[in-house]
């Protein structure tokens, strides 16, 4: 919890620090467990309910641990038109996870994203910070076998 106090202290003088603190806490701990949220509440003198409300509103925050590799499939308009549904169902079948799920061995997390902003390469997916464009079901098999 020292790490958390360090983060909170950094923002003590800043107005509206809740979101940056949550972002940094998530980067530090990998996700936002309950005791971290309680700690932030105490540090900022905010009710836990308010923090929980913010955490669950934004898609970036998560309350359970994520896998080592987060696979993000884009479902933006350009990707949708170019067959994103097929890409999503192929990934789901290959790693046996539904959208939003993490494998029990914490290897993969599968998410879909509103738009990854690489529309010229649609359909697009990401594994951690790497983009993969012009996806086909066949390409997915090759890419995922590298992880």
């Amino acid at each position: 919890m020292d790490k958390l106090n360090e983060i909170i202290d950094k923002y003590r003088e800043t107005e509206g620090a809740l979101i940056p603190i949550l972002q940094e806490a998530q980067e530090a701990f990998g996700y936002l467990p309950k005791d971290v949220l309680v700690g932030i509440g105490k540090g900022l003198k905010l009710p836990l309910s308010q923090i929980y409300g913010v955490v669950t509103f934004y898609s970036q925050f998560f309350l359970t641990p994520h896998g080592k590799y987060t696979i993000r499939a884009c479902r933006g308009t350009a990707c949708h038109v170019q067959g994103a549904k097929k890409i999503i169902s192929t990934i789901e079948n290959l790693i046996n996870l539904k959208e939003g799920e993490t494998s029990p061995d914490l290897k993969f997390t599968f998410e879909t994203v509103a738009c990854l902003g690489a529309c010229a390469l649609s359909p697009v997916m990401m594994v951690n910070k790497d983009y993969f464009g012009k996806m086909t079901p066949k390409k997915i098999t090759t890419i995922l076998s590298q992880y």
Binding site: E15, I19, L22, Q23, V54, Y58, S59, Q60, F61
Partner: peptide, 25 residues
């Protein structure tokens, strides 16, 4: 720099400001 935390509605001005203030957008 303020890093948006992932909510489409933040593109709306008043929601965006609420987000910077640390509230739900």
């Amino acid at each position: 720099i303020f890093r948006g935390a992932g909510a489409f509605v933040c593109g709306e001005e008043t929601a965006l400001m609420a987000s910077i203030e640390g509230r739900n957008p």
